[in-house]
Design a protein around this nucleic acid. Structure first.
Lengths: 232, 232
DNA sequence: CAAATATATTAATATATATCAATAAAAATA
DNA sequence: TATTTTTATTGATATATATTAATATATTTG
């Protein structure tokens, strides 16, 4: 039995396993390989900048990055990208000549930049590949919808619980981890100020839901954290 | 020269013209036609309900509807669907067995329900159709990102300005119109309480940006309204 | 290592917006 | 048309969270 709240999480990372490159023929794989470059971005470096011209499709080979929108005053992290995911496929759309969002690396990351016209060409010749792209776009939207709802209608406490669970369960896959994100990063993810993040974390710690010391984090009580995520 | 703020609107209706059915062969069009039904929904009726089993793709032939998420306490309208648009293509993804959102009609509407397996079948056989679907999904995400940012980081005043501009420019294509949405509908669209909507509308009216009498609406000063949309 | 810089923490205060409650107006129904 | 129900409006109050500012702690750099 599926609960409606289970789809409503501020979690921002895709759980979808990208399988599209498996669908390529040898020739297609070679074509993509020939028309792409692998670039290493250091922690904190900007991978792509909002407003710039779209000329490639970016694929995260190794690392962790954020995709975000910034209006000069506020920043909203749309999603976290881990290895094996595209930084953005929405740019495939003919309408989007300019990048709508920026991306930057949380940790040292290897990104493959694929020429967009070559990518489109392969898309036109390989229907299995295209279907996989549809799959990715659909999953991405679904994720975004849940996150959208939470960031507009859940309160801070629940939103932060979501993010902590997301980090532990989907990104590090451990209950204990060294956080590569700053408090400000957490704030951009959960749509609140960094001061509020700190206060909430402190409260979680005091209530025994997490253990925290600087960047060290440990989820102590998953159950209660999930309940907070659900009740707001 | 493109301004970054121009992409940041809470506007919730796709400006993308769906062209996917044009790509079908006669046989494919017939197949889809044979495996679909047209249903008329009256104003206020629920078209589909969050949590239910996904078995068809819904296409708005005529009318106006909202696609929304509801947790029993709050409602967020994800987008407005007008004629010539899909109510949701994200359900195409194999992952989504259950509907993540509900839809209901703002006005009397004709909706075509297409069997999802037939839709997928056509997708597998016609690459131009698949590419068009990718186009739609990409445009939808882009729209959603802008809206997401606005609803989390713009204040009410700017968000409501967005919605009014959206209604006038994209939906009714007139500066004067009879609003088929209630104040509560506006609230769900702009992510605030209906009381706040009323107060903001009153203020717009007092400041001479709009003229309003009950459900009659007229945009008086587009320029100022746009400035409010941009500055917050 | 010391100095400089960036990040984290804490507390006090401000504020936008929700909530609550009461009334008015409009729409639906008998 | 009168009655009931729903929607809109208004004002008073509550509250979550941002903002500001000051201090402490890390981290980076010379």
């Amino acid at each position: 039995m599926q609960n409606i709240n289970s789809i409503l999480s501020s979690c921002s990372i895709s759980s979808h396993q990208c399988r599209c490159f498996e669908k390529l023929s040898e020739a297609e794989a070679a074509l993509i390989d020939k028309n792409s470059v692998k670039i290493r971005f250091s922690k904190g470096e900007i991978i792509s900048k909002q407003g710039s011209f779209v000329s490639q499709i970016m694929y995260m080979e190794k690392g962790l990055a954020k995709v975000y929108i910034d209006n000069g005053k506020n920043t909203l992290v749309l999603k976290i990208i881990k290895e094996g995911n595209f930084i953005g496929l929405t740019t495939l759309s003919e309408d989007s000549t300019f990048l709508q969002y920026s991306a930057s690396a949380y940790i040292d990351s290897d990104v493959r930049l694929i020429d967009i016209s070559v990518f489109r060409q392969v898309l036109s010749s390989n229907i299995e590949f295209a279907k996989e792209v549809i799959e990715i776009l659909g999953t991405n939207s679904a994720q975004m919808y849940g996150r959208f709802f939470c960031l507009t209608h859940k309160q801070s406490y629940g939103r932060l619980a979501d993010i902590l669970l997301c980090l532990s369960e989907r990104i590090f896959k451990k209950e204990e981890f060294e956080l590569p994100l700053s408090r400000k990063d957490l704030a951009e993810l959960s749509g609140m100020s960094s001061e509020t993040v700190i206060r909430m974390l402190k409260r979680f710690h005091a209530e025994g839901l997490i253990y925290m010391k600087g960047k060290e984090m440990k989820i102590v009580d998953f159950e209660k954290l999930r309940r907070i995520s659900e009740t707001g």
